[in-house]
Structures are given as structure tokens and as C-alpha cells.
Design a protein around this nucleic acid. Structure first.
Length: 230
DNA sequence: CTCCAGGTTATAC
DNA sequence: GTATAACATGGA
């Protein structure tokens, strides 16, 4: 997850995070983007631990953000090892390792409200444990190759792969398109179109935002959610 | 009760 | 290539 918001323990990540505002200089004439940046001051990209990031986003499909947090908290409370945390922290356990989740089994994962995502998380965990997926090695591969490797996991498509690339590996050329970003792109860049296909949005983001697409995605995501909240 | 949620997959034109 | 249903679960 990335954001400007709430959890106190995020502050260290935010403080250490990269300034995203160079995007302003890259797109000086993009009114929608400038507006999004203006309303989302202080936004930073997180750099999450890859396994936690991957598993969390596999849990995210067709779930509300509040529910994703709940699932991650449940998994951590049940199987995560205890870690030092400030007293106000909601959870004081780390996210469980892949090996732990493999031994927990599918039924136990379903008990944590994963539903049909349980076998997906299990497939990812098995690949990591068995060495068929080397998360550390992904850091040394280019973005398309790393994306392809992630998408071999059952339950990981383009969107989740791009989330991991962006939030765990810092690949700023990754551009996860979820329902919110689809909404933002359609509204801001294709206002006349009745319907814009996924392939169309994908090729637009690549050619238009290029190497900064990850920055842009974060601003557009938070911007459109702020809009929706009013 | 119906609709939808930081999607992906299998199946069918 | 594009469209649609199914997949668990719970909040709005």
C-alpha cells in the first residue's frame, strides 16, 4: 500500500521516501496531473518488503481497502513473529513468511477471510519456498522480465504484478491500472469516449507517462479517491 | 435485497 | 482481441 495517510509507523517510510514532485517538471502542461499533485502534497512511494507486498496484493482483488487491511492483520496476528512496535500500533506482529503460510494450509487461509484468493496466496508461497520464484533475483531483472515472472503465479495478473514492481521494487515505469486509476484516466484523458478498453489505457500510460508512470499513477489514484469522497 | 470492492481466470463469440 | 460469469466475503 502507498499513501499520505494514517498509520504512524508509515512516517519513517514517508520521510525516507523519494520526492515525487519531479513529475511536475516532466509534464508542465498537464492540467489534470498538476491539479492532482497540488491536492496530494507529501505523497511518497513506499518500498515494501517484496513477499509481504506480493501476498498483500494477491489478497486485494475485489476487496475494499479496509478489508485488505483486515486480512493482512489477521494473517499477521495468527502467524507473524512478534516485532517491536509503538504502543498505538494496531498490529505488533510481522507479516508471516511464505514457509509459514504453506504449512498453515489453504483451509487456515480461508479462515482469515481470503475466500477464493487462498489458493492464489498458497501458489505464490509454494513457488517462493520451492525456489521456483526468486524474489531477490527480480531486483536484478528488467521490468518486463520481472513482470512476466510475477505473472506466472496463479492469481497474479498485470495489475498486481505492477503493484509489486512499483511498491516493492521501486520500478517507476510500472503503472498498475485498477478501478480507480481506470476511472481517473477515462475521466481526465478520455472525457469524450463512451468506453475505453484496458489495452487502450495501458498503451496510453506507457507512451504518455513513460518512465514516470509510477509517479503519475499514485497521484491519479489518490486524486480520484479524494474526488469520490466529496 | 442489490450492487460493488486497489482482479484474475476460464470460457465463448 | 473483446465480452461475460464466477470466484468469497462484507460494507454501502
Amino acid at each position: 500500500m502507498a499513501g499520505t495517510e494514517e498509520a504512524p509507523w508509515l512516517h519513517q517510510h514517508l520521510a525516507a521516501g523519494e520526492e515525487l514532485e519531479p513529475i511536475l517538471a516532466t509534464f508542465p502542461d498537464d492540467a489534470p496531473l498538476r491539479s492532482a499533485v497540488a491536492r496530494c502534497r507529501g505523497l511518497r512511494l513506499l518500498r515494501q518488503e517484496p513477499w509481504e507486498c506480493l501476498a498483500s496484493f494477491i489478497c486485494s482483488s475485489t476487496k475494499q481497502i479496509v478489508q485488505i487491511r483486515q486480512i493482512v492483520a489477521l494473517l499477521s496476528e495468527r502467524w507473524g513473529h512478534s516485532v517491536a512496535a509503538p504502543p498505538e500500533a494496531v498490529v505488533n506482529r510481522a507479516f508471516p513468511t511464505a514457509a509459514t503460510l504453506v504449512s498453515a494450509g489453504e483451509g487456515a487461509l480461508r479462515d482469515c477471510k481470503l475466500g477464493f484468493r487462498a489458493p492464489y496466496v498458497l501458489d505464490a508461497a509454494r513457488r517462493v519456498v520451492e525456489g521456483r520464484l526468486d524474489l531477490e533475483a527480480l531486483a536484478h531483472r528488467d521490468t518486463p522480465a520481472a513482470r512476466e515472472a510475477l505473472m506466472e503465479i496463479h492469481g497474479v495478473g498485470r495489475k498486481i504484478a505492477d503493484c509489486v514492481l512499483l511498491f516493492a521494487y521501486g520500478r517507476q515505469d510500472a503503472f498498475p491500472i485498477d478501478v480507480w486509476v481506470r476511472r481517473a484516466l477515462s475521466q481526465l484523458y478520455f472525457p469524450r469516449a463512451r468506453r475505453v478498453s484496458a489495452a487502450q489505457l495501458e498503451s496510453f500510460s506507457e507512451s504518455y507517462f513513460g518512465p514516470y508512470s509510477g509517479y503519475a499513477q499514485q497521484y491519479l489514484f489518490h486524486y480520484i479517491r479524494l474526488e469520490a469522497g466529496r
